[in-house]
């Protein structure tokens, strides 16, 4: 199988069959909290896609050209999290100077993203699965899109839920969101048959 095809497979799978939130449980905190409103969910989703793709790429380079080369792989957690935090800070600074429109849309979410487990999680999975750079990039982008898809879908559902359904007190907020997430996870499992490896 050519590398490009494999990378595409990884990309596709990261969105649907191995969704980083619905299958790997990552990125839940912000997911539960932000998915109340559709607009903010879209904003956060976009920001996550951007950060995940870029940090996957950067961290891949750092992992193979710095950590492995100098045999300091055990420091990877520190390296990755610092890269992520620094990247997010940098992007926030740049966006603030360059574009008010972009800042209004994305900027406020960036600090939230640093602690989003999904970002670090995507990097760690990428490293564990020993992806090539292309596949790693595909995985980062795909995971971001998958996460964004999940949170936007959830926001849409919750908005409707607020209007039409009477949720028992014990389930309001996190409870019902988790149940919906569970049902969504079930639904996404249905995608499993779409990917075949030659």
């Amino acid at each position: 199988m050519t590398e490009g095809l494999f990378a595409f497979g990884v990309f596709f799978a990261a969105i649907f069959t191995n969704n980083i939130l619905l299958t790997n449980y990552l990125g839940m905190c912000s997911f539960l909290a932000v998915s109340r409103e559709l607009k903010t969910s879209v904003g956060l989703g976009m920001a996550v896609i951007f950060v995940m793709t870029c940090t996957s790429a950067i961290n891949w380079l750092i992992y193979y050209y710095v950590l492995v080369r100098f045999d300091i792989v055990y420091l990877r957690y520190i390296a990755f999290i610092i890269v992520i935090a620094a990247f997010v800070q940098l992007v926030e600074l740049v966006i603030e100077r360059v574009s008010d429109v972009l800042y209004a849309a994305l900027g406020i979410f960036l600090p939230l993203i640093t602690v989003n487990c999904a970002i670090l999680g995507a990097v760690l999975f990428m490293v564990i699965r020993e992806y090539t750079f292309l596949s790693g990039l595909a995985y980062g982008a795909g995971s971001g899109i998958g996460w964004a898809l999940a949170i936007i879908a959830m926001a849409g559902i919750r908005t409707k839920l607020n209007i039409r359904s009477k949720v028992p007190f014990g389930l309001t907020g996190a409870g019902i969101t988790l149940i919906i997430a569970g049902i969504m996870a079930l639904a996404f499992m249905g995608f499993a048959g779409m990917i075949t490896i030659t």
């Binding site: 199988m1 990884v10 799978a13 191995n18 699965r129 020993e130 992806y131 990917i195 490896i197």
Partner: peptide
């Protein structure tokens, strides 16, 4: 005997 077996799965080796 025992044979080492690399091979393609869904996600990687």
């Amino acid at each position: 005997y025992a044979l080492p077996v690399p091979g393609a799965g869904l996600w990687g080796e």
